[in-house]
Simulated assay, not measured.
Amino acid sequence: MNLKTLSLGFVLASFMLSGCSSITMLRTKEMRAVGDDVIAKNDSAYKALSAENAALRAELDSVKAQLDASAVAQKRLQAEVTVLSNRMSEETVRRDTRQEEIIYRLDLLLGKSDKILAKKVVVNNGVASAVMEPDANAEKMVEAETMFNAAHSDYHRGEYKLAYNGFKQVYELVKKGEMAEGALYWMSLCLMEANQPAKAKTLLTNLVDSNPNGMKACAGMYKLASIYGNECNLDRKKQYLQMILSNNTCASTPELEQAAISLQEMLDFKSSDGRSATEICREQMR
């Protein structure tokens, strides 16, 4: 092989190597360009997804804030409804009590209108004339009524001890009759307000037992049913509710309807776990 041939081979080899290097560089540039384009597209997609995610998060936060505000508003509404309900209940009690007091005072006025002054016949020179003289019993009733009204006012002002003493004085003054019954009944209410249900129960029991057809018998029996219910003595509660329903005196009283509803609720009671109403009541008291 001569020198000319070797030179030619070297030139050809150099040309080939130079061509391959150029092709490799071109392909590398193309790959880099493709990679940069993919990265740019990925960056654009990521930014778009991030923006969309941020918008969704903001919307979720807004919805959550609205739900929280709605829950707060609902709680406030429930609280306002409860307050209004309690006020209506208290006002109903005051109205009923005031109505009872008015009826009671009217009965007293009508009953004693012919007792304030008693006729005494005096014969003078053969002529009979009627002379009016005070009736001691009527004066006592007037005094008792004044004390009763004062004690009643004390009760509604929350002065339960003072009211109790006033009603007690009324009872000791008259001893028997409708005013005495009323005094015993209100004395028991004062004791209940003073958290002395045992003493209240004793007074109410005496009231009901001594005069089961009296003016305050039906109210007294319903109060006894409530006290025994609070003590989880449901048998005794049921007994007094049945007494109200079977007492003709209670036929036109609000206690009759209340007793019927309470007794029906007791009869309809069924627990999901088989426990009795008494067991559930005692567990709630713990």
Rank of each mutant, 00 (worst) to 15 (best):
T82H: 09
R87G: 03
T92P: 06
D37I: 12
H156R: 14
D68I: 11
K29C: 09
E172T: 12
L17C: 09
E178Q: 09
S70R: 13
K140E: 08
E255M: 06
D43C: 12
N2F: 05
I280C: 01
M187D: 00
L117A: 08
R236V: 11
A150R: 06
M16V: 12
A73F: 07
I102N: 13
S44T: 11
Y222W: 03
L267N: 12
V72A: 15
L8T: 14
V72Y: 04
V63F: 02
S113L: 14
I280A: 04
K120W: 03
M16I: 14
E257V: 01
F148P: 01
M266T: 06
G166A: 02
R76A: 15
A48S: 11
S62T: 09
E279F: 05
S62F: 03
R27W: 08
M1Y: 02
G166Y: 00
D36T: 11
S113A: 15
V122H: 01
E80T: 08
K237Y: 02
A58Q: 08
T82W: 09
Q169D: 09
E181N: 03
D36Y: 11
D61H: 12
G126L: 01
M221V: 02
E145T: 15
L49V: 11
L6H: 11
A219S: 09
K238C: 00
L56S: 01
V123L: 04
E101Q: 15
C218P: 06
K75G: 10
I103F: 15
K237Q: 00
Q169W: 01
G229K: 00
L191Q: 06
K270A: 07
K201L: 07
E255W: 03
D268W: 06
L26R: 14
L234R: 02
I280W: 00
G19P: 08
G35K: 14
K270W: 07
K168H: 11
E101F: 12
L26G: 13
D273L: 01
N149H: 09
E283K: 05
S272W: 13
L110M: 14
K223T: 01
K201T: 09
N165T: 11
I102Y: 14
K175A: 04
A194T: 10
D135K: 11
K270P: 02
K140Q: 09
T278M: 10
K120F: 02
M221A: 04
S246L: 05
D61C: 07
R57S: 12
G126W: 00
Q284R: 11
G274H: 02
S89D: 10
N211M: 02
A65R: 07
K216G: 04
K115T: 07
E80L: 07
M285A: 10
L108H: 13
E145G: 15
D96E: 12
A151Y: 03
A260K: 15
R98Y: 11
K216Y: 09
A118F: 13
